[in-house]
Design a protein around this nucleic acid. Sequence first.
DNA 1: CGCCGGATTGATCAGTTTCAAGGCATGTGG
DNA 2: CCACATGCCTTGAAACTGATCAATCCGGCG
Lengths: 232, 232
Amino acid sequence: MLTQTITAPAVPTTTVFPVPQGVPAVDQFNAIATCAGVIASEFSYRKDEEIYGEGEPSEYVYQVIRGAVRTYKLLNDGRRQIGAFHLPGDVFGLDAGSTHRLTAEAIADTTVRLVKRRSLEAAAGSNVQVARSLWIMTASDLRHAEDHMLLLGRKTAMEKVATFLLEMDRRLTRTGMMALPMCRRDIGDYLGLTLETVSRALSQLSDQGLLVFSSARQIVLRNRQRLADMDA
Amino acid sequence: MLTQTITAPAVPTTTVFPVPQGVPAVDQFNAIATCAGVIASEFSYRKDEEIYGEGEPSEYVYQVIRGAVRTYKLLNDGRRQIGAFHLPGDVFGLDAGSTHRLTAEAIADTTVRLVKRRSLEAAAGSNVQVARSLWIMTASDLRHAEDHMLLLGRKTAMEKVATFLLEMDRRLTRTGMMALPMCRRDIGDYLGLTLETVSRALSQLSDQGLLVFSSARQIVLRNRQRLADMDA
DNA sequence: CGCCGGATTGATCAGTTTCAAGGCATGTGG
DNA sequence: CCACATGCCTTGAAACTGATCAATCCGGCG
């Protein structure tokens, strides 16, 4: 894991630090990744290409620049649970242990910024603000996972889909139009449903006038309030 | 609930530091809680008593000394998802944000050690090993949540119960006998099932000879391998 | 002894999955 | 430019898993 070869690149105490507190996890990463001694580079993946696999050594931490990523776990017979979708700006692959806990794949053609885990660890070892940022980012993932456990364990299919739509609306609507990067199967594997059930729920919401499709993945929400009501 | 009568037993600054790395999250807390400037005390709760509520300011971090704790989220109509059970030694209530994300209740009469969040933060601000420990502990919770999402979203009732039994066997079997502190409803709300389904699954496992009841909550596993096989 | 909460068991119900067919859009090669 | 293949999505019908409703049962305790 952490070897002694790390030359803690005496990070200059400039205005880059301290990392601001009470700030979104994403910005924590931005602050860190641009700080002295932390090496960032870019890489691209084609649609459906694996970025890392469950159980592999966690060498890098990633930030989506363009595209989208799914992280998931599999059961031995192929059943899949997607833990999260990662959209532009999101950080993923930050595991405290030495190996990745989930597999990461590009949903569409995707560009990421990547940072060597070792250099993050090194920075964290000499700067408590960086160490704090790692904690904040992991805590942010935990918060999402806790919310998602409630959804998976206790919400109905309709409530799950409503929650999903509001989450995606919040995270990727820019022009009033939500352009989903993922297919129905991905959505189902995120919500603990089959792709057919997802499709039926979306059709039903469309029939009720709560949303409008301009194509299967281009959706405009028409009544966020009623969606929020049904999301329990 | 918690009054100001807690007296801080000034703990000596000894060889407790540095906190060892590559060590279970629980021990991270043990090391921290005994370090200088971190104020630890004890408190007890009766069965079903609330320890803190979702949304309340997170003033303390807790460690179970005796008893057991459930942490959960509720939907507005009362449906409940238990995120985790906390057994002796386990740390809970460590939220990076300023408020608790779940409610915590004593499952049985329970004694906890508690540490002021502020003093943890203070220690983390001056000691990167403490900061690292906070990260490790939160990452450990995240790992559990990721595994549990897979269970909730993709496992069958039988698989869920098998997984639960193996988890509890690992965590609380001491004398060869597993003494479950929680009722069937708690188990159901942890696994995303009803209490009846849990009961039926346990009866079926008993019929198959995979376990033996000495009472409803006193269970001996007879065939961990076959349980592990069915847990998918 | 009888009460009470928790657990078990049975019967029926409902929501979601499964299986199956067909539609629609996109892209490719003739 | 059209024919067709392909992948993704929708829709329908049947099957099934787990939920719901309901009736004991059991064990601990006043």
